[in-house]
Amino acid sequence: MDRNVQRRTRALFVYFFVPGLTLASWVTRTPEIRDAIGASVAQMGLVLFGLSLGSMAGILMAGRIVAARGTRFTALLGLSMVLASLVTVAAGVLLGSQFVAGCGLAFFGLGMGKTEIAINLEGAQVEEILKRPILHKLHGCFSLGTLSGALVGLALVSLHVPVAVHMAAVAVLVAGLIIAFRHDIPAKNGIQTAHDRAVQTAPKASVWQDSRVLLIGVIVFAMALAEGAANDWLPIVMVDEHGFSAASGSLIFLAFTAAMTLGRFGGGVFLARYGAARVMRACAILGGAGIAYIIFGNNPWLAGIAVIMWGLGTSLGFPVALSSAGSGGGDSTARVKAVATVGYLAMLVGPPGLGFVGEHHGLRSALMIVVLLIAVAALTARAVSPRTA
């Protein structure tokens, strides 16, 4: 592997890791954050709505920022906002303010939206250079970040370390990682030339007019929503609906992230042997079955197994969909950007909507929406089969 490509890939591994670490750092403390700011389920949904607003803005702005300043600038800008979110959430907890905590999650969503679009575009280009799949491993680093964050979170919950101290410590680590790898992604990659802009403004069909891309969008929406629902609500569901302690809720989230990490790093073997469509269908069925038990079951041990099924089942949905969108001829960058946008909107914007449903009908009932969408993904999984140019 060329040295520059190697450094670029290493930086992408780190920059996928950082948002996962940050996400898990506050997700594992959501029951304590909720109590500190005095939020009900509906009010917590409003706090998470800050995440939704930030995410929508970040995702929708990312394409223009990449075109004007490049993927590296966009990723670093987004990661700086992710860093700021940790400090703001800590301030919200210290002040007991739902508004400040919501602003912290808005910063996280805004930063993650920009970062993830930029680094997924980078990852898709690296796949083209290497001529082999790598996005599932990059997303595996995001899951590794969530796993690491969940491990630390579980330990700090058990040690009764204040949430604000936890957030501050993670902020210092994140700042160091951002600075250390800031030069390893090409500076001008993704910037549009005058010719590119002329081609872009010329009349052409939308990528969504391609029925295959549309079906991939449906699949990624369902699978990303399942992942986002766990990231935002799993500890609270296990504490409020299944009677787990706060520490046990963090442990359950740890099991979920471990399953996600295992699925993403180990999934390449199954993709090579069985193909993307069969793996996607099997993942959807497995994940849907796990979520269904969380909804209808009550045995704590079986609920733990169901959470592992949930994690394994949703692990490959997002990266496989992105790789499939990038395969074949034509404007693969536009397809990857479109599918990534749908996926991140589902993962970051969808879960707060589940919170509003959960306030009126219970979080278990809200998760039925996710199960129904995953069933659709299983039925349409054939769309992720590779398409040649």
Rank of each mutant, 00 (worst) to 15 (best):
M1R: 13
V5H: 08
R8H: 14
T9F: 14
F13Q: 13
Y15M: 14
F17S: 02
S25G: 14
T28H: 03
I33H: 12
I33K: 07
G38N: 13
A39D: 08
A39W: 04
V41E: 11
M44N: 04
A68Q: 06
A68T: 05
G70V: 10
A75R: 09
A75S: 15
M81S: 06
V87Y: 00
G92N: 04
L95V: 09
Q98I: 08
A101T: 15
L105W: 07
F107A: 15
F108T: 12
G109P: 11
G113I: 11
K114A: 11
G123L: 01
A124Y: 05
K137I: 04
G140M: 09
L144C: 01
G149Y: 04
L151C: 14
V152N: 04
G153M: 06
G153R: 06
V157L: 06
L159N: 07
L173M: 15
G176D: 03
F181S: 12
R182K: 14
T193F: 08
A194G: 01
Q200V: 08
T201S: 13
D210M: 08
I219R: 09
A226I: 01
E227S: 04
A230W: 00
I236G: 03
F244D: 00
A246H: 00
A247M: 02
F256L: 15
A258E: 12
T261F: 15
L262Y: 01
G263P: 11
F265S: 01
G266V: 10
G266I: 10
V269A: 11
A276E: 14
R278W: 10
C283L: 01
G287D: 13
G290A: 09
G290H: 09
I294R: 05
N298R: 15
L302W: 14
A306P: 09
I308K: 03
V320D: 08
G330R: 06
G330W: 06
T333Q: 15
A334F: 02
A334C: 06
V339K: 04
V342K: 05
M347N: 13
L354K: 08
E359G: 12
E359M: 01
E359W: 02
H360M: 08
I369W: 12
R382L: 03
R382D: 14
R387Y: 00
R387I: 11
